[in-house]
Design a protein around this nucleic acid. Sequence first.
DNA 1: TAAACACATGAACAAATATTGATATGTTTA
DNA 2: TAAACATATCAATATTTGTTCATGTGTTTA
Lengths: 103, 103
Amino acid sequence: MSKITIPSQLDTTILAETFKLLGDPTRLRILFFCLEHPRSVGDIAASLDLSQSLVSHHLRLLRGARLVRGNRQAKQIFYELADKHVSDMLVDMAHHVCEDGDD
Amino acid sequence: MSKITIPSQLDTTILAETFKLLGDPTRLRILFFCLEHPRSVGDIAASLDLSQSLVSHHLRLLRGARLVRGNRQAKQIFYELADKHVSDMLVDMAHHVCEDGDD
DNA sequence: TAAACACATGAACAAATATTGATATGTTTA
DNA sequence: TAAACATATCAATATTTGTTCATGTGTTTA
């Protein structure tokens, strides 16, 4: 059971878009930083030593792919992962990168 | 339990490298095509309508990241996913891309 | 309202990357 | 060995993409 389904070329492209977003160290750092609890843009920039502009640009891409969502709290906007789905996947992959080298 | 572990900056970079490889539609198509059983380079190129050169290039990258492995069978070389680890992740992600739109 | 603060956006540039075409390497068959 | 076949590699090109700097938008406080 659990038959293997080969995605259509369109689905493949969509899937690739998501992977592509995850394929950048800066974006991954942002995502992991927001994993535990929501973080403001300024906090992200300061903690990760990135320019505010750069963080905003990346957050826009991540927002566009529904990987994160932000809600305003007074002047600041706090970003968190979009849903458990995404965070589970990240944690899962993080584990994978640690346990390397079978074979 | 299952405490969230934030990867080091180095680990993040390594993880990103893997995601980056998965973040190309052509490579994803190659991977899914080899999911069920090993496929020769020529078969991949013909079936996916890609030049032989392009397929070889991509396979080299995938090999370098230990995402696929190939074994020679006479003139041809048959490629398959490196381990269950990789294929499980791919199938998993393929499922994710289908079930969209919570919220 | 004006100034200050937090974040978003646009243009521009440099670096990375996918793709192509030609050629090389290695394996088999005549 | 030579020719044919399958795959790999090299060099070059065109596109994509991450980053920066300057500026714009929206919210709060004086």
